[in-house]
């Protein structure tokens, strides 16, 4: 403490805020367009190993091959894992409580990370279908979440 009785500054505050405009690239762009315009979910078919990856990339994460084509998958899928959120994290697109889910869509070989309502029917092995938002913007959140079928 100084003679005047003041405390020594402990920290300084600041903000490092950057606005980004991330290039989606051709493959992701097509995926987002199909969500927005047609309510369709596209997977990437690998020219090397034939795996269908969802979400799609222009290359195969499994074998390193090139993506041959984009193919519609789902809309039905099976939950392979889930996790319940009680307190929504920053940037969450839905209110808590909700669930994170891994969904293996029909016709896909890799699982999509997405959201589901906090419904006890959302469990491993359960069939779910996407619920699309109105006023879609070309984002993965154009699917609000996946809900149990029926």
């Amino acid at each position: 403490m100084s003679e005047s009785g003041s405390l020594k500054p402990d920290q300084v505050s600041g903000e490092a805020r950057l606005e980004y405009r991330w290039a989606a690239g051709g493959t992701t762009g097509e995926f987002l367009q199909a969500l927005r315009d047609y309510r369709r979910i596209l997977g990437a078919v690998c020219g090397g190993c034939g795996m269908v990856a969802v979400p799609p990339l222009s290359y195969c994460e499994i074998c390193g091959g090139d993506t041959d084509e984009l193919r519609e998958v789902g809309p039905r899928g099976v939950v392979t894992s889930w996790a319940r959120v009680i307190e929504a994290p920053q940037g969450s697109p839905v209110e808590a409580p909700f669930r994170y889910v891994l969904v293996l869509l029909e016709g896909a070989d890799t699982a999509l990370v997405h959201l589901a309502p906090d419904d006890d029917r959302v469990d491993v092995g359960v069939t779910v279908v996407p619920e699309f938002r109105e006023g879609r913007s070309g984002a993965v959140t154009d699917i609000k979440w996946f809900v149990p079928e029926g």
Binding site: Y20, W22, A24, T28, L32, P55, T80, S81, W82, A83, V85, A88, P89, Q90, G91, S92, P93, Y100, V101, L102, V113, H114, L115, V124, A139, V140, T141
Partner: peptide, 29 residues
């Protein structure tokens, strides 16, 4: 959260804890 790509994971607020929780359930199941 900054580990997540801006197209497929970050809009869903998937951070290390969320990804870890999905992995934990997968393993336990």
């Amino acid at each position: 959260l900054a580990l997540s790509d801006p197209f497929y994971l970050r809009p869903l607020a998937v951070d290390a804890l969320a990804a870890g929780a999905l992995q934990a359930r997968f393993y336990l199941h």
